[in-house]
Simulated scan of single mutants.
Amino acid sequence: MVKPRDRQRTGGGDAVDSYDKSILDLERLRRYANRVSAESKSPPSPKIVRQVSKSIPSTETRRCGFLGLRTELVKVTKSIQVNETVIGPHWILHHTTHRIESHDRGKFVEFGEQNYWALQNDGSLLMIWDWEEFTRWDNGMTRFEKECTAKLMAEKDILRLDFADKRYDHSLSGNGTKFWGNREPGRRIRHAKGVGLSVALKGLLP
């Protein structure tokens, strides 16, 4: 899904690497994504929702006046929990993970991050960032936080699929921290920009 320029050859006849000279054709990729979302026979994953706090105007009755014998309506703002759609029905094209564990100064922290390249059923190309963090202190207190958001796939996200996932596993001495996963890009595995995404989309077609 690219517009590669003409390949040049050296005097020895070897092809010059054309990847950096290729042009990422975003419009063509978007058209292809729309076609795949319409023609795929694979059932999509269900939509993802999250709960968020929302402030809404409201009124309440309060007592006022001498001995509280009189009432009046006052305007207030209330906070309620509502469901918010992060992404509609979708297909996962690729995903990476990154995890951290640390134990230092009376605190244990476990963090997990998942990044998903996704095709929504309306043809949109989206990135999903899903993370959670658990903290436990030596006094027994704990805290758990999580978040899931989605945004339109940027050019750097598309180009990331032209590279293999680089697996890593590191333990750092001294502060009890270790991290592992495959979030970082490794060697390039596609000959032109955008081919990785194109191949992932093609995998959804019959």
Rank of each mutant, 00 (worst) to 15 (best):
I189Y: 01
V109P: 06
E110N: 07
P89K: 09
Q120I: 07
E60T: 09
R190V: 00
I158M: 06
G12T: 07
H94P: 00
T149N: 07
R62I: 12
P4D: 01
S22R: 10
S102P: 00
I48H: 02
C148G: 01
S55M: 13
R188P: 00
R28C: 06
R30A: 10
K107V: 15
T10P: 04
G181T: 13
P4R: 05
V76I: 10
H191D: 09
A192N: 07
G181M: 14
I56H: 07
K78D: 02
V52M: 12
R188L: 08
R167W: 06
S55P: 00
R9Y: 13
D20H: 13
K78E: 14
T96K: 00
I189C: 09
F163T: 01
K3M: 07
L201P: 08
A38Q: 15
S79M: 05
Q114K: 15
G11Q: 06
D130G: 12
N139A: 05
G186A: 12
F163N: 06
I92H: 12
L159N: 11
E27L: 11
L93F: 08
P4C: 06
K41T: 13
E132W: 11
V109C: 09
E155S: 13
H94E: 15
N139R: 10
M127K: 15
R31D: 13
F66V: 00
L205C: 08
G196P: 05
P4I: 00
E110I: 03
F144E: 11
P185D: 13
R188C: 04
G181Y: 15
T61Y: 10
F111N: 09
K178T: 01
A38R: 14
G140R: 01
G12W: 01
H94C: 10
G186P: 03
E101P: 00
L159W: 08
L152Q: 13
L125E: 10
T142L: 02
H191P: 05
L201T: 03
D169E: 14
D165Q: 15
R167I: 10
S18P: 05
K178Q: 12
E101Q: 03
H90Y: 06
S102E: 06
L126G: 02
G123H: 11
L126R: 14
R183D: 14
R62D: 10
S55H: 04
E132V: 09
S55K: 14
F108M: 08
L73Q: 14
K54H: 12
L197C: 00
P4A: 04
L67M: 07
H98A: 12
E39Q: 09
H95Y: 15
V74F: 01
W129T: 12
F134T: 03
R28I: 02
V52R: 14
G11T: 06
T59F: 08
I92E: 15
T85L: 00
A192F: 09
K54Q: 12
D165R: 10
D122Y: 06
V52T: 05
V76R: 02
V36K: 04
E101D: 14
S37V: 07
K107L: 15
Q51Y: 14
G13C: 07
Q120A: 12
V109G: 03
I23E: 15
L73P: 00
V52G: 02
N139I: 09
N139W: 11
T77Y: 00
N121A: 02
T135G: 04
D20W: 11
